[in-house]
Design a protein around this nucleic acid. Structure first.
Lengths: 163, 163
DNA sequence: TATTGTTATACTCTATAACTATA
DNA sequence: TATAGTTATAGAGTATAACAATA
């Protein structure tokens, strides 16, 4: 257990708290906007946006779940919700009959289009407004490095428990 | 509605996504640790930690809610949970009988103490490990500025709705 | 009348485990 | 046997509105 110094110094603590708080506030604000503009939760927006970016316009459930930190049952729940609203379709794949291909409908794409400008506006006003261009570049670089590191790091909290 | 450019360029988008993702991953990891080590949600930890930092060791419900983005009923819910577990006490204030003074119990302080080392370890391993000292300083400075800006900005999503 | 806090209630989301069907 | 996905179910958290009590 390599825990050298027991405590965080004020600078470290400051960076930690600032990250948690800005992340929360930004996400909360974006969530509000998505809800108001399109009745979407953030996760639902992410699912639609991921589908929108998909080359074929369709993905398997498992592919959709990847990166969105999801239990499969949670994804099924959201997919059902989005399908009921007519924003996506689900169909069994011809290749592998176990898998389900998920695709954006025209209406789904419309919702995405409708929601996007406001989404961007919130990010601009809340996150980018107080920053200079070099600030944004440095921030993206630093947090990008942190993100890559976090992705590599095994979700250590899960390991010691089951299995 | 000053939305100059409709889209975010790659650098802006990168900073935005990196912030959302690192914030989520870090919070998720910390939440896991808090749950495993002390059966606490992040919000519960924040409540206990806020009480722990309070000069008198006790705060009014309203003071507790401030900054933790809470509906009052949500705070009541968490306070009930924490009180049942014996981590806090609630008592009517002698001064103003409408208010409730919340205080950390000895056991509450113990849980906080028990949970803290692991909490710090997670922050170190996930956030601080891949960063140099200047990185951390710059990151804290930049995000601190963003946080201050976000706090000032009225929760615009709430304004247009009710009263 | 305004403020503090609770209650009732409903809804969203998440997670686990059991289950079905295909490979 | 392993993989893809669904279902059942339960639990945590959140929000709104109505309410009671005090200032």
């Amino acid at each position: 257990m390599p825990s050298d110094a027991p405590n965080l110094d004020p600078v470290e603590l400051g960076a930690y708290f600032a990250l948690i708080e800005t992340g929360s506030l930004l996400r909360h604000a974006v969530e509000q906007q998505l809800q108001d503009a399109g009745g979407l939760s953030y996760v639902q927006f992410q699912l639609l946006a991921t589908l929108g970016d998909a080359p074929a316009g369709s993905l398997r459930m498992t592919d959709l779940a990847d990166g969105l930190v999801y239990s499969r049952s949670g994804l099924t729940y959201q997919a059902q919700t989005l399908e009921k609203r007519g924003l996506i379709t689900r169909a069994p794949s011809p290749d592998d009959e176990r898998t389900v291909q998920v695709a954006l409908t025209t209406e789904g794409r419309e919702v995405l289009t409708r929601v996007f400008p406001g989404h961007i506006a919130v990010v601009r006003e809340l996150l980018l407004a107080p920053l200079s261009r070099p600030d944004v570049e440095t921030l993206g670089g630093t947090l990008g490095r942190v993100r890559d590191h976090m992705r590599q790091t095994p979700p250590r909290s899960a390991a010691p428990r089951r299995r």
